[in-house]
Amino acid sequence: MAIRQCGSVSSHLVLCDAYGGCVELDPRVLAANPMIWHELDTGVYRSVERGTLRHGADVLAQLDHRIDDDAM
């Protein structure tokens, strides 16, 4: 699994699984849907525990901070 952020003005996340499948998400979708964000965050946490997240934990940590800041 890998996560990367593309762009700075109109950024989006690219999530790739172990089989080469990828999906692009606008981070605002995650911020507007806490349940989707929770599912993604939980899955990433599991990937980190299992050693299957190759890179991108820092991208999700930054997004987590932004979502938390927006919620306050």
Score class of each variant (00 low, 15 high):
25 L>E: 05
26 D>G: 08
72 M>V: 14
41 D>G: 03
40 L>Y: 01
61 A>Q: 13
17 D>V: 03
61 A>K: 09
17 D>Q: 01
66 R>S: 14
48 V>R: 04
70 D>W: 11
24 E>W: 03
30 L>I: 07
20 G>F: 01
34 P>D: 06
54 R>I: 11
8 S>H: 12
7 G>L: 03
52 T>K: 04
22 C>L: 10
16 C>L: 15
68 D>M: 10
67 I>C: 02
25 L>H: 11
1 M>W: 12
61 A>W: 05
58 D>I: 04
29 V>N: 09
7 G>N: 06
21 G>I: 01
50 R>N: 11
59 V>K: 01
34 P>M: 06
54 R>M: 10
63 L>Y: 09
4 R>W: 05
56 G>L: 04
13 L>N: 00
48 V>H: 01
6 C>L: 15
6 C>E: 08
30 L>C: 04
53 L>T: 02
14 V>G: 00
64 D>Y: 15
67 I>A: 01
61 A>T: 12
26 D>S: 13
25 L>M: 08
64 D>R: 15
36 I>T: 15
11 S>D: 14
23 V>W: 00
67 I>W: 09
21 G>Q: 10
51 G>E: 02
28 R>A: 04
4 R>I: 11
24 E>N: 13
63 L>D: 05
65 H>E: 13
22 C>F: 06
68 D>K: 15
67 I>N: 02
63 L>P: 03
31 A>E: 10
37 W>Q: 01
17 D>Y: 04
28 R>E: 07
1 M>P: 14
21 G>D: 10
5 Q>S: 14
62 Q>A: 14
18 A>D: 07
67 I>Y: 05
72 M>I: 08
25 L>G: 02
16 C>F: 00
47 S>I: 00
52 T>G: 06
14 V>M: 10
8 S>N: 13
35 M>Q: 12
19 Y>R: 08
30 L>P: 05
64 D>F: 10
26 D>R: 06
64 D>P: 02
32 A>C: 06
32 A>G: 08
49 E>L: 14
40 L>Q: 04
72 M>Q: 13
69 D>F: 05
13 L>H: 00
21 G>N: 14
3 I>F: 06
55 H>Q: 13
60 L>F: 03
50 R>S: 07
47 S>Q: 11
39 E>A: 15
67 I>R: 06
44 V>D: 00
41 D>R: 12
41 D>N: 10
42 T>M: 07
3 I>Y: 04
3 I>W: 03
43 G>F: 04
60 L>S: 04
48 V>T: 05
64 D>I: 00
20 G>N: 02
51 G>Y: 03
46 R>S: 10
60 L>H: 00
10 S>Q: 09
